[in-house]
């Protein structure tokens, strides 16, 4: 039996929103420690890894590890009916052929419940090693969202380069070139406004802007985003969820042959 109660159900709704433009069918893996997701987009260019610790939940019981196979467009439709302050309860039997979702609101006294049929989803899992990256940048997630949105008018590809100078986003297209440079900035009192750049060696990689924009759907989950890069490796774009988990996106670079 699996049973989990999340006082701030909105966190789960935001997690669904953060991946639903990348993947259609997804397995949510439940274990005694956490809920987790690993999935790729249909072109296998991007990988999403989500983790939400059992400590995020007010109540968490998982007798036996199981995978909940969900169709995200359907899940998203159900979450549209969840109120902002609702508590969410998830329940599934060990057979995992259906998922019960409940949205409760003490103030209004409403309880909405849904039963969702689950699917058996065959998905390739990748072994993602825990690597030390050459560059690690922490910046406000809203700034990152604005930059990758704005650069779309210039071209399809974004060159991200981390040097002594700072972190530079560049896009080139028919109308010309745009560059946005972020310098290290720790002047603000609010830590979430800081830009910190930790660079062991300069790195420059090219990425599809379309995907970078998909990833910014996770912006409501976290005030900061962490970018990690090493030469010739997929970039990691991490949105920490308080101390309770994360949504991480990995994006394969475009490489010169």
């Amino acid at each position: 039996m699996f049973e989990a109660r999340l006082a701030n159900g909105n966190i789960f709704k935001m997690i669904v929103e953060s991946i639903r433009e990348l993947v259609v069918d997804v397995n949510i893996d439940c274990s005694t420690e956490e809920l987790s997701i690993q999935c790729m987009d249909s072109a296998h260019v991007a990988l999403v890894s989500m983790s939400l610790s059992q400590s995020a939940f007010d109540h968490f019981r998982c007798d036996r590890s199981l995978s909940l196979g969900l169709n995200l467009p359907n899940v998203s439709k159900i979450f549209k009916m969840m109120g902002r302050d609702d508590t969410m309860v998830l329940k599934a039997e060990d057979s995992a052929d259906k998922l019960m979702l409940m949205f409760e609101n003490d103030k209004s006294g409403t309880i909405a419940d849904f039963e969702l049929k689950l699917m058996a989803i065959e998905a390739e899992q990748l072994g993602v090693p825990d690597t030390a990256y050459k560059c690690s940048i922490s910046m406000p997630s809203s700034e990152f969202q604005r930059i990758v949105r704005d650069l779309q008018v210039m071209g399809d590809t974004c060159k991200i380069s981390c040097t002594k100078e700072g972190l530079k986003f560049s896009a080139t297209g028919q109308i010309g070139t745009g560059n946005i440079l972020m310098r290290q900035n720790v002047a603000s009192e609010k830590e979430e406004d800081h830009v910190t750049i930790d660079m062991e060696e300069p790195v420059e990689l090219n990425f599809a802007l379309r995907y970078l924009n998909f990833f910014t759907k996770a912006t409501p989950l976290s005030p900061t985003v962490i970018l990690k890069m090493s030469p010739g490796l997929p970039i990691v774009i991490e949105y920490p969820i308080e101390q309770l988990g994360h949504v991480k996106y990995y994006l394969a670079p475009k490489m010169e042959e």
Binding site: E124, Q125, L126, G127, P129, P234, M255, E257
Partner: peptide, 14 residues
């Protein structure tokens, strides 16, 4: 134009 690589070129399928 640089071609797009895929995730499985970097990480092993389990």
């Amino acid at each position: 134009k640089a071609p797009q690589t895929r995730m499985d070129a970097f990480f092993a399928v389990q």
